[in-house]
Amino acid sequence: MTQAIDMAKREAEERGTSLWADAWRRLRRNRLATLGAVVLAVVVIVSVAGPWFTPYAYDEQDTALEAVGPCAAHWLGTDVLGRDLLTRTLHGGRISLLVGIAATAVSLLIGVLYGAIAGFIGGRIDSIMMRLVDILYALPFTIFVIVLMVIFGRNFILMFCAIGAVEWLTMARIVRGQVMSLREKEFIEAATVMGLPRHQILLRHLIPNALGPIIVYATLTVPNVMLLEAFLSFLGLGVQPPMSSWGLLIKEGVETMEEFPWLLIFPSAALSITLFSFNFLGDGLRDALDPRVSRD
């Protein structure tokens, strides 16, 4: 019996490594995904390094100049306090990218594990776990965040916690649904019969097979998180002016979209480009990781 398990383990590991190698190969061959990855890398590099190369500081005001459209001195124009929009957009990108990626990762990790465990174990424990999710869904988020701030003070980490606290919930529900339908499948039954430990089945078979919806939802979470950050700023959590983020820039841009449309267009474009890249990359990953796709 032990031998059988060992064999199954080794097999699973081999299968695992080849799965990842395979996936990597497939991903590189996917042109859109590669494009997405490259653009994303460029956005990250430009946001991180860009502000050092622009001739203005993100908080450098020129109130006599006020808001002007794109011109030679200010490629993307300036905002109402005469600050260079290019610098501010790049600078805001740092925040948004950090929040978008980190908070999504947090919610992904919690949501996937939680949902998978609930769906896999099932029964009473599943029921309790999912009711806990219901409770967290229903709590008034505004008050929740305000109380968090009272207890923990205002810091950047707290923002991730606040975002993570809401964003993993739907992810957990989605993963749970997937796992529940997968666990009745033949290959899982086979693995169970083979005596593979449950955490192995969960991590090696169930979650990889549910990756499609997980990745799709994760790419949907990124914009959500970036905009949620703007709402948290409203409550005083998150970036503090004169710093900004894409979410905040867009929020302010809306109010002046008829007078100074560039204040809405450029930050929105930055956000959109990033999200598109995330999305292409996500789709590519999904296809690449699909264990059933072996047509090519």
Binding site: M257, S268, N279
Partner: peptide, 13 residues
């Protein structure tokens, strides 16, 4: 994707 990138507080106005 465009629909997702444009939040409702932008789309509405």
């Amino acid at each position: 994707m465009v629909g997702i990138c444009i939040p409702s507080f932008v789309l509405g106005p």
